[in-house]
Design a protein around this nucleic acid. Structure first.
Lengths: 240, 240
DNA sequence: CAGTGGTCTAGACCACTGA
DNA sequence: CAGTGGTCTAGACCACTGA
């Protein structure tokens, strides 16, 4: 017995999901309150348990419900809201705006890692680390100063890349395709060198992103991205 | 025929998922390259197609693979990376650090919406809008200046809430539990009033978050959250 | 013990693609 | 037409919870 499923109709799991989502949006189940069980939804929608399960699992992935085995499904407390922030490669972001991107390589060399850096990169003190300092321009205006350290183990040919043609981010994505990162976003003043490179005053506010990237527990790269506050903004969306 | 699944063993869909994820991490399939089909994985892992499907669907949700019906599954191009940024309610964030939070209500009143605000809030010009200005303190130090407009239709009793006991964010989450938001994060100077309220200099860099929140296409609230750059930071993680 | 969620199977029909 | 993904069903075993 199989229901026909013309393209015009919604998939059953979508109907269940939308029903629950709409109820949550209307406050039908208060945060923490128990929601219908899988078997109740199976009866109500006349679908199989797999279908109901998928609907609820997706709501769980979106953070809208909490499930406890043996107990039930509950409307989530939305005191925290997770947001999806898509960080695009700067080159792509600029060209997507129809503007031209170019990069100036200020520095690209191997250095001996000082203690603080060594510990963050998982290297021994004095071991070789690659260091690049690149300024990115949008239509000739400096938009980002990228100060980056790279673990030679992960990208041995890093210094031979032409960073006027490929961004370090893109290069590293190709070398080490799957990674995790922690980052922090803060506002602060640029260093004297950064101010000069970005053509701003040392007292101008900058948006500073510090990012540490790890591939299967091996530190790949540590980057400090400094943007003139007046020219750069991060946009995002919440979609709980 | 059902396999026993002791707690010690991984779930089959996890084994398939981990296999594919590990391969992607090792560059076994280059970005854009076709990956094994569902039926190939079914044969290889001796599991059902539902199980393989779940594994791949979750990788797709994580942005690691791209699927095209009738064609196949492909390793994703990771040129953009989506990050999960969990924004917690400020009260919760501060108390989680073991610190004390308190709020000073500078302003809480109804106003007539000027044109620019009216269009953003979906109101007519001159219609009533609620306006609050609240300073949040962590252990007595000002951490955030919250300038917020609220649509009276969504939260008619907003001005009667005691914002020294509940944050506007928490209050609005209860009134309108499911919402979407757009936000922008930027660095810039505070206004003269904000500088005074935050006890900083007008030239000090601030991290400014502007957030517009919508519930089922009805604008709920517009907020400008100003943080002293020296005292506040947003942390996040990429987990592609 | 009854009820809950966690997961799996074997088979099915379908839409879509490209040869 | 063969191969791909998209989705569903009816039933199953399991772990867990709380009465």
């Amino acid at each position: 017995m199989v229901s026909t499923n013309p393209t015009t109709a919604q998939a059953p799991y979508t109907r269940v999901k939308d029903f629950l989502k709409a109820g949550l949006g209307q406050g039908r189940w208060a945060p923490g309150e128990q929601m219908p069980s899988e078997s109740e939804l199976v009866a109500q929608f006349a679908v199989s348990r797999m279908t109901v399960g998928r609907a609820i699992r997706e709501l769980q992935a979106e953070g809208l419900v909490t499930r406890v085995q043996g107990v039930g499904t509950f409307a989530a407390h939305l005191s925290r809201v997770s947001s999806t922030l898509t960080i695009r490669d700067l080159h792509e972001e600029i060209t997507a705006r129809g503007h031209t991107h170019c990069a100036q390589v200020v520095l690209a060399r191997a250095e001996a890692a000082p203690p603080a850096l060594a510990s963050q990169m998982g290297l021994r003190v004095g071991e070789t680390v690659f260091h690049t300092l690149i300024v990115h321009f949008e239509n000739g205006v400096p938009l980002q100063c990228e100060d980056r350290y790279v673990n030679p183990v992960c990208a041995p040919a890093y210094l031979h890349a032409d960073f006027t043609r490929i961004t370090p981010t893109q290069y590293l994505l190709e070398v080490a395709p799957l990674w995790e990162a922690q980052y922090s976003i803060e506002a602060g003043p640029p260093t004297a060198q950064e101010a000069k490179l970005l053509d701003i005053d040392v007292h101008d506010a900058c948006l500073i992103v510090v990012r540490r990237t790890v591939n299967r527990d091996v530190p790949i790269t540590l980057a400090r991205l400094v943007h003139p506050g007046a020219r750069y903004r991060i946009d995002g969306q919440f979609k709980p």
